[in-house]
Write a protein that binds this DNA or RNA. Sequence first.
DNA 1: CATAAAAATGAGTGATTACTCACTCTAATA
DNA 2: TATTAGAGTGAGTAATCACTCATTTTTATG
Lengths: 209, 209
Amino acid sequence: MTEWEDIESTEKLTEKQKLIIQAAIESFAEKGFAGTSTSTIAKKAGVAEGTIFRHYKTKKELLISIVIPVVKHFLTPFIVRDLNKVLDQTYHSFEDFVRAMFHNRKVFIEKNKKTIKIILQEIPFHEELRDIFKRYVATEPISKVLEIIRHFQEKGELIEGSPYTILRLAASSIAGYFIARHIVAPEVAWNEEEEIEATIAFIMRGIGS
Amino acid sequence: MTEWEDIESTEKLTEKQKLIIQAAIESFAEKGFAGTSTSTIAKKAGVAEGTIFRHYKTKKELLISIVIPVVKHFLTPFIVRDLNKVLDQTYHSFEDFVRAMFHNRKVFIEKNKKTIKIILQEIPFHEELRDIFKRYVATEPISKVLEIIRHFQEKGELIEGSPYTILRLAASSIAGYFIARHIVAPEVAWNEEEEIEATIAFIMRGIGS
DNA sequence: CATAAAAATGAGTGATTACTCACTCTAATA
DNA sequence: TATTAGAGTGAGTAATCACTCATTTTTATG
């Protein structure tokens, strides 16, 4: 129901604050940040408009507070753990690693679908969002994935060539699955498991050696 | 300079109208449709605000008039022509077809970069845009590409399986190139030809048989 | 040059915007 | 029960919004 609460359940939020966040997530996802007024959010949440500004100094601060926990949990905690699983050979092949990531992040993406939609929609317009994204996704997690790619290149399991290029090709295919599944053709009946396996097979044929 | 004029150069537009369209493209691309005011566009174009509404009944009509010609020319005229080239064997292989499309559409995408950015940003918020996209991209061109895929499947050049899945995988890889090149990492120095060839090789290893 | 049509103008419209603030309510503690 | 601090309120504010319209300027044609 609430896309949000399970992520930062430790934080103590007022009942009304949760209503505000839920209403904001739905409104921002549907109409965009600039297309949503604070009075709309207040009405949808069933609170007074002033209540929003008691908890968040500005409308933008509300957006940031929604986005931050999802960006934080999108890759960081798993990539580091998975790098260790690669190094201690819990994952015997790159394919094992890709398959684990795919299924693991699938659950997260589907649980935080609306917030991720907001992030994709708003990132071109807010420098702060770009900074948050760089901080929690574009630096450490990416360098860890590059390490993993190099590891399997050295084992001769992946083709040679720039790890950045290999990352781009694999990431495009995986992102393409989720974008097709949830944005381009959400109403189509999908055989999810079949499509996921086809995507993994495509990636491995493309960059395996 | 103007992303626009070469597409519909036949249409007779006022000097001021061209300025308005150019200013609107830049503003919408940078701040989004909802984040751009008509007074901002007027100032940037160096015209009175009333002039905008003399030519376009509403702000949204201005958006549509910018977007339509680019969507119209994105795939339709080339896919039909290329299907014939496939059938009369001007393209001897699927790889030839993919390479031709890639380079051909690359020029178009780079020429209409800002407008394409606007389309991607605004399509979730405007039903009219989705209708235009369905009309000019999602129906005829896609069914033609599926025909081409089936053609090369029958020749044994592509793997078997759902043509939709094959299309999704190839399109993800190609779109991933342009998104990485122009949105995710536009400031990075790219060896374009090398990356394009790596992408085509990836696709062909992934779906070739 | 005279005339008419089209293009352009900019002050003005009511509605809506994000945000403020003086005030009330609620619940926990002494 | 009295006190107090934070939560919640909603009317109010100045700024900005998309859009209008009476008027002026430009352009094309005789």
